[in-house]
Simulated assay, not measured.
Amino acid sequence: MITVRRATIDDAQELVRLRGVLLTAMDGRAPEPGPWQAEALRVLRQRLADPEGSLAAYVVDKPDAPDELAACVVGVIEHRLGGPINPGGTIGYVFNVATDPGHRRRGYARACLEALLGWYHHRGVTVIELKASEDGESIYRALGFEPTAARTLRLTVVDQPRRP
């Protein structure tokens, strides 16, 4: 039996650690330590403090080390302009689906994702998006996610003043 729980502020540091695990898996190399970790920690602590807010994270604790996480998923609710498939414009976005390397292939990430999907359902969110890695795509498809025709583009602006 897998026990999934909603993450709290106390889990923020481990969520950042697992983000590093995810980034390593996606890029093939570990990310350099840097300000991204402190900023991620700050944002998680702030947003996890509001259980009625628009961010939720679900986690599974390591069975052999309860102060560490085996897996996690984070999701947000955004409010955009409506359209034909989503008249209300409310959309869920899933990210940071990560499992510690020593705890993979046990269903932990899937259990976390199912809990997050329940949170979305409870909040009335009917359109949910994510970006899938090759390793994760089969789990997402099994839960009903389908590819879209949308083409994602990104602009990265450098030398912007940092907000306080």
Rank of each mutant, 00 (worst) to 15 (best):
H103K: 05
I139N: 02
L153C: 12
I91P: 02
E146N: 04
L155S: 03
F145L: 09
D100T: 10
H121R: 10
Q160G: 10
P101D: 14
E114M: 03
L153T: 13
Y108N: 13
L153M: 15
R151P: 00
K131F: 07
I128V: 14
T156S: 11
G118A: 12
R162S: 13
F145M: 06
N96G: 14
E134N: 11
K131Y: 00
E134L: 13
V127H: 06
A109R: 04
I139E: 01
L155K: 12
I128F: 04
A142I: 02
G89L: 04
H122W: 07
G89K: 04
G102M: 08
T126F: 03
V157K: 06
T148Y: 06
V94S: 02
V94N: 00
T152F: 08
V127G: 01
T90V: 13
V157E: 08
H122A: 12
R141D: 08
F95D: 10
A150C: 02
W119P: 13
L155T: 01
G136V: 07
A150R: 09
A149K: 05
R162M: 12
N96S: 13
G102Q: 13
G89Q: 05
R154G: 03
C112Y: 02
A150K: 07
A111G: 06
K131D: 07
F145D: 00
T99C: 09
R123Y: 15
G88P: 03
Q160N: 07
E146V: 13
L153V: 14
H121M: 05
T148S: 08
P101Y: 11
T152E: 14
T126P: 01
R151V: 15
K131E: 14
